[in-house]
Amino acid sequence: MMLARVADSLYWIGRYVERAEHLCRLSDVMLTATLDRTESATQIARIALAAVGDTDNAAKARNPYEAALALVLDREDPGSVASSLARARENARQVRDQITTETWERLNLIHLRMSDPNDGRAFADGSQAFLHDTIADLHLFKGAADATMSHGEGWRFLLLGVYLERAQLIGALLEVCFGDRRHRAITDHSALTSLLRMSCALEPYLRVYTADMQPRFILEFLLLDEDFPRSVRFCTARIEEHLTSISRHVEATGVSGPDRLAGRLRARLQYAEIGEVQAGGASAFLGAVLDECAAVHRQVYDTFVAYTLEQRLPA
């Protein structure tokens, strides 16, 4: 049992933190690609920008440094890393009594560095070191949450946010790379490597498929792998797990809970086969997955946070 408002805040901390981490990684890969001066640098930048929803990106992609700077530090942009972290931290401040001091300190520290007036210079001096440190700190935050928070309802709401956001972000990235709107399949070796890096999947991929870079394998790995923590299947399994646990205590209200949707979503990925997915078009499959993620989000709100009082008042 916890306050609905608190559950809501914890859920959004999870979402914002995951979003910030993903954006940092996209920016990092984008900047690394420019170092090699390969032909594919622009292509990689376009993939990264399209994956964050910026489709009209031809001009920006020619200057990846500026694009990355805006993606990370632009406070005017509600979607930037700095904005996401500021919101995560603001949410954490509102539920300061619900998270452990160790967890709070991590997040507060990241926020303080991001909002430092000299952060622009720190980014210019060594943008990759800056991004690397931020990602490492976000890992520390998740580690602190895992190691010090009780693995009860609050922690599950936090992770529900993390995995739902992650499923949607990876889903969007895959849609950009393998969807119907892409006219030319990505075949370039360094572009494919970068795609794996964007989802932090290079090393785990190599262990499963060796250094054989095949678009089909990459799609299979990022979509359907059972054990890789950033595959969509893995995320949906966690979403179901946390929702089932959270829903246990809700009084039956007649409406079907979000755990049913989560179970169906998990099953869709668990019993999928890459050949079938490709035969039907990756876009159709990814579209269904993303729609169901959105439906889970709505259902979470209707069940736990913004429920109507009439249903819950004592008779």
Partner: peptide
């Protein structure tokens, strides 16, 4: 103990409740 704001509270039949994830408490 929970830290509540006015918007978390509901008064019904002279009883005070808070909105939780599992209903009113």
């Amino acid at each position: 103990v929970p830290l509540v704001e006015g918007r978390d509270l509901v008064v019904h039949d002279n009883m005070v409740y808070m909105r939780t994830t599992t209903g009113l408490r």
